[in-house]
Simulated scan of single mutants.
Amino acid sequence: MSGSVGQVLVTGGGGFIGTALTRLLLSQGIKVRNLDFVPNDFTAPGLRHFQGSFLDHGLTREAMAGVDCLFHLAATTFTREANQNPARDAQENILGTLQLLDYACEAGVKRVVFCSSGGTVYGPTDLDLIPETAPTNPISAYGISKLACEKYMRLYDASSGSGVGNGALSTVTLRVANPYGAGQNISKAQGALTTFCHRAVRNEPIEIWGDGTVERDYIDVRDVATALLAAARAVKVSGTEINIGSGRGASLNELVSGITAQLGHAPTVTYRAARSFDVPRNILDIAKAKRALDWEPVIGLRAGIANLLADMQSRPEA
């Protein structure tokens, strides 16, 4: 069953996933507030920007007033930065998320959709497909803080019976795989596919750590956006975590083959020694998303690579 979504607040709305989500929301006639240091790279009726951090108490309260749904996408650190300073990561992202939940309760927000990391919260596993019931043993500070935030989402959800919050908040966590797509900032890109495409169009060598058989679950950012909206609308889903991915794996060598097929020539590839912290396989089971959200991805890897390469080739630096 789907519910209506009124005015929303997106933390990190000027980022990669945030921009895709904002465009989708606006196309549905939903008013959007973007709380981010980075404004959206477009203007539109119904879009309002609040410049700053979700850690800013006054700004956050102002931005959240009158909001029906909060999409919490922002984080102050990436994986490498979190590992370099776990204390800062916990202080800002775990406690910052707790602060957001308190403000959401104060403001009467009905739903919070939290963007977690399907690529880091599970850790090493031998499973071919990882369901939400799989053990969570993250091996990075980033994954640990995401998992902690997930637990607080459950605690604040009205169905938990914990008494925390206002007793009316509904939360849903999406464990997103490896997003890619047009508009991704290459300097902040965490995924191999975006980096590979960027190097390929610039005729720079692609570096692969190991033999290229490491498998990941890659999902187009436009499919991530539709999943986030589906989570906001799924009124019967609450206090739970849901995997969002393609449901299939692709090795690093397969990514290179896909790029080669689109470009018509093979990029140069340099293989380096394998890294101990690279999980050999991480592919999400998305059966719950299909069942609970009536959602599944519609953009295949081949079409996604073609779209990403076209975007890369259109950039001035290409």
Rank of each mutant, 00 (worst) to 15 (best):
S2E: 15
G3C: 03
G3F: 11
Q7F: 06
Q7D: 15
T19R: 02
T22N: 09
L24F: 14
I30S: 10
V32M: 05
L35F: 01
V38R: 12
P39I: 01
G46K: 01
Q51M: 02
Q51H: 02
G58I: 01
G58Y: 00
T60E: 11
E62A: 01
A74V: 02
T76R: 05
T77D: 03
P86W: 04
A87I: 00
R88W: 03
R88N: 01
E92D: 05
K110F: 12
R111Q: 10
V112Q: 06
V112R: 00
S117A: 00
S117Q: 01
Y122C: 01
G123Q: 08
T125D: 08
L127C: 06
L127W: 13
L127A: 07
D128P: 12
S140R: 11
Y142D: 07
Y142K: 03
Y152S: 00
Y156K: 05
D157S: 00
D157V: 04
G163C: 01
L169K: 06
L169A: 05
T173K: 04
V176Y: 02
G181S: 00
G183M: 04
K188F: 08
A192M: 02
T194K: 07
T194Q: 08
T195R: 10
V214D: 11
E215Q: 13
D220C: 06
R222T: 15
V224H: 01
V224T: 04
A225Q: 11
A230T: 07
A230M: 14
A231R: 05
T240M: 10
T240K: 09
I242L: 08
N243L: 14
I244A: 06
G245P: 12
G245S: 07
G249L: 09
S251W: 12
I259V: 09
Q262F: 11
R272V: 02
V279D: 10
N282T: 09
D285I: 06
E296L: 12
R302Y: 13
I305M: 10
L308V: 13
Q313V: 09
S314H: 11
R315Y: 14
